[in-house]
Design a protein around this nucleic acid. Structure first.
Length: 464
DNA sequence: TTAGGGTTAG
């Protein structure tokens, strides 16, 4: 348009800037900014809004804030500013400057300006990012009084807020009241159900979507597969896999990772490995998934091999990758390999082992009877040992008939969790294992005083 | 002109 000599105006610039922002074309965005100045559109609210949005989308938040401040100084009143405010707000949110975003919302609110659905959307997103349900409830109150509760986007974010904070009834209630339920509202609800452990409900919602012939995209599949894994529902998982193949959704990297995870959690590790070997798009999450999967399925050596291949391929393992491979060593009794990997965490990868990594090592050492090494590691670790660590040592005392440590561990356990009935059960079992029947029966009596431990439960696949 | 969703652990 420019080359052909057409006049660029207040409609052209926002569109061009939006394209730059979406594609992350900062240089072209800056060139367009130059034309905006040249043609005198710097104070046009739509153009400024698009400029703020473009800079924020290109990770140049400072530049966006500069433009926003410039615009705000020239416009003392809030009149004609909401679009610019909303762009700035969204910029803060996508760049995770949550506190700045909250301050801006409060500034908009106290200015008395009309707040629209865009402002509410960003405000609610900030509450989700900050895990602040209390603030979310306050914003929800304002949303209701302003009449935006059933706006299809604001409504979706509210569903997300409630689903992510444990109130599935609020999320479901709102979902049913929405007149327009688009794909993101469905996806937010399904993801929320999975997060809260309502896995069967999540799967049934997905089935409703398919039966209603609604479009399902690549964002929904990982949640549905996670529901299948949690239900150990191989049949359902396979149905979802077939659905992905039919709809062409299996090529997405995240979908692949979820499929591999589903097969490995349902015990079909061979299928998981086959999928992994045939995937070209493997990020560190995908590698971690196969390492964890092998470990869970008793394939410790393969987990280590995948771990080494991952590093050779130039990808950086994170804390979860290490936990996966150490956990594999733990289940496989591979002490030497575990030590090498554990030590390399800090020395070669700059990662500080967390309590869970120490737990893997301590549990492994105790299981193979290396009590001295395990105790030394507990003494050396920069965390206070918790009941899980003491419990693992205690279990190993039973296995190896090590009566020396039991009294000391009992003291530590009763100091950390004096009212946990499962600890009394564990202690009583260890006493029984080493033949200390009197102590065992004393503890059985004590269990009745503390309160009975809730019985364990098993799960089988439900076919519907 | 400005707004929303997914994967790996314990």
């Amino acid at each position: 348009m420019h080359r052909q000599g057409l006049k660029l105006d207040g409609y052209t610039f926002p569109c061009a800037l939006k394209a730059c922002g979406c594609l992350g074309l900062l240089v072209m965005g800056k060139q367009t900014h130059g034309y905006v100045v040249k043609y005198g559109f710097e104070s046009c609210q739509f153009t400024v809004s698009a400029l703020v949005d473009m800079y924020a989308s290109c990770n140049e938040l400072e530049e966006a804030v500069k433009l926003f401040d410039q615009y705000s100084r020239c416009r003392a009143s809030g009149h004609d500013s909401l679009v610019v405010w909303n762009s700035m707000l969204s910029g803060y949110v996508v760049n995770e400057h949550n506190i700045a975003a909250i301050n801006l919302v409060s500034q908009i609110h106290s200015s008395g300006a009309h707040i629209d659905s865009y402002t509410f959307s960003s405000a609610l997103k900030v509450c989700i990012n900050l895990h602040n349900l209390r603030l979310g409830l306050q914003v929800h109150g304002l949303v209701v009084t302003s009449g935006y509760e059933l706006d299809y986007i604001v409504g979706s974010i509210l569903i997300d807020l409630y689903a992510k904070h444990g109130n599935i009834n609020h999320a479901l209630g709102l979902f049913h009241r929405l007149a327009k339920k688009d794909i993101i509202a469905w996806s937010g609800l399904i993801a929320g159900c999975v997060k809260l452990g309502f896995n069967l409900l999540a799967f049934l919602l997905f089935r409703d979507m398919v039966n209603l012939d609604l479009k399902v995209d690549q964002f929904i599949i990982p949640s549905v597969l996670k529901a299948c894994s949690s239900l150990v529902g191989l049949r359902s998982g396979k149905q979802v896999h077939a659905f992905c193949l039919k709809k062409g959704l299996e090529s997405e990297g995240v979908t692949m990772t979820s499929l591999i995870d589903m097969y490995s959690k349902c015990g079909e590790i061979e299928d998981g490995i086959d999928l992994f070997n045939n995937t070209s798009e493997r990020d560190f999450v995908c590698w971690t998934g196969i390492i964890v999967g092998c470990g869970k399925n008793g394939r410790a050596a393969e987990a280590i091999r995948f771990f080494q291949e991952m590093i050779q391929s130039g990808l950086k393992p994170n804390e979860i990758t290490f936990l996966g491979v150490l956990s594999a060593c733990r289940h496989g009794g591979l002490v030497h390999e575990a030590w090498t990997i554990f030590k390399s965490m800090k020395t070669e990868h700059g990662l500080e082992p967390q309590l869970e990594h120490y737990y893997c090592m301590i549990d492994l050492l105790a299981q193979v009877g290396c009590f001295e090494e395990a105790e030394k590691l507990i003494a050396d670790m920069p965390f206070e040992p918790n009941e899980i660590i003491w419990g693992s040592l205690l279990g190993a005392c039973g296995t190896h008939k090590n009566t020396e440590l039991i009294a000391f561990i009992t003291e530590c356990l009763l100091a950390t969790s004096p009212e946990d009935p499962s600890i009394f059960v564990a202690l009583s079992n260890v006493y029984a294992a080493v033949g200390m029947w009197d102590d065992s029966s004393k503890l059985r009596k004590a269990i009745k005083e503390v309160g009975m431990k809730e019985a364990g439960k098993s799960w089988i696949e439900i076919t519907t």
